[in-house]
């Protein structure tokens, strides 16, 4: 019978209540075909050390909770096959550029504060949004301007890979900036001028010097580096008043969605 291959996992441990400094601890995990890094972490917790801490939820690359530094590259533990990493030794550490809560758990609240600061939503008049006179029709080309940025799951891998964020913790970073750009280029949005105040500040888009690491590591294939370069151009054009169409698109009836006649009114709200 063939012997089971064993993989050595070097995991960075740190409990701020007990430890002065982070340290590495090694665990042997039997390899199984199809095994992802998250499975190995579960194995370690169940068989060696129940105090090992990490964050996870969906186990299928959707929630963005299990971002960590695997063999020096920020990625999702649930999406990384152990077989594809090669070799018999794997090093795992928490995402850099973040404070550590415990072991492999990064403190993401600062990233989300920056995210909230750039108003990551469509800014419109509330009354107009509720008005049923039509819909915000977009062409395929208009959709393509921001579609790939909607795939972002806020895992923080791009923030961990950013060399600018490593030297300037106040820099907004690739995720908030690309999400600001996602709404800036959305024809339904009217909040670009407000966002420009934040994205055009001294810790905004102009800090990026296009290392491109954020795009390289993005587990969803988004391209935040490109979005930031487009944002820089848009900021300069806005400053020079070179963008003519400042108004967001208005509600209309798109092709095939003409207003229907004799449609009874919606029932009143019950809650």
């Amino acid at each position: 019978m063939a012997e089971t291959k064993t993989i050595k996992f070097h995991i960075r441990r740190y409990d701020p209540k007990k430890d002065k400094e982070p340290y590495f601890k090694t665990y042997d995990v039997p390899f199984q075909p199809g095994m992802v890094v998250l499975d190995a972490l579960h194995y370690i917790r169940e068989n060696y050390d129940p105090s090992l801490a990490w964050r996870y939820s969906c186990r299928m690359g959707v929630c963005g909770s299990c971002g960590m530094l695997i063999n020096g590259s920020p990625t999702l533990a649930c999406n990384t096959q152990v077989a594809t990493l090669g070799g018999t030794e794997i090093t795992i550490a928490p995402l850099p550029n973040f404070d550590i809560v415990k072991d492999l758990v990064p403190e993401l609240s600062k990233m989300f504060e920056k995210h909230v600061a750039v108003s990551p939503f469509i800014v419109r008049d509330e009354k107009e949004l509720d008005d049923e006179k039509g819909e915000y029709y977009q062409t395929e080309h208009q959709l393509e301007q921001y579609l790939q940025l909607t795939y972002c799951i806020r895992c923080g891998c791009c923030m961990a890979a950013c060399p600018t964020l490593a030297t300037d913790p106040d820099y907004l970073g690739p995720m908030p900036l690309s999400q600001a750009h996602r709404y800036n280029v959305d024809t339904r949005d009217g909040g670009r001028k407000t966002r420009n105040e934040k994205t055009g500040s001294s810790h905004g888009a102009f800090k990026c010097h296009f290392a491109g690491e954020c795009s390289r590591v993005c587990p969803k294939g988004a391209d935040p580096a490109k979005a930031i370069q487009h944002m820089k151009r848009q900021l300069v054009f806005d400053f020079l008043h070179l963008i003519k169409n400042q108004k967001p698109c208005e509600k209309q009836h798109g092709p095939g969605n003409e207003p229907k006649k004799d449609v009874p009114p919606a029932p009143p709200y019950t809650v």
């Binding site: 420009n196 055009g200 500040s201 001294s202 905004g204 102009f206 820089k232 300069v236 806005d238 400053f239």
Partner: peptide, 12 residues
């Protein structure tokens, strides 16, 4: 927006 001003000046 202050940085946008400086950056635009830099580019121009």
């Amino acid at each position: 927006m202050k940085e946008t001003k400086y950056w635009t000046g830099h580019i121009l």
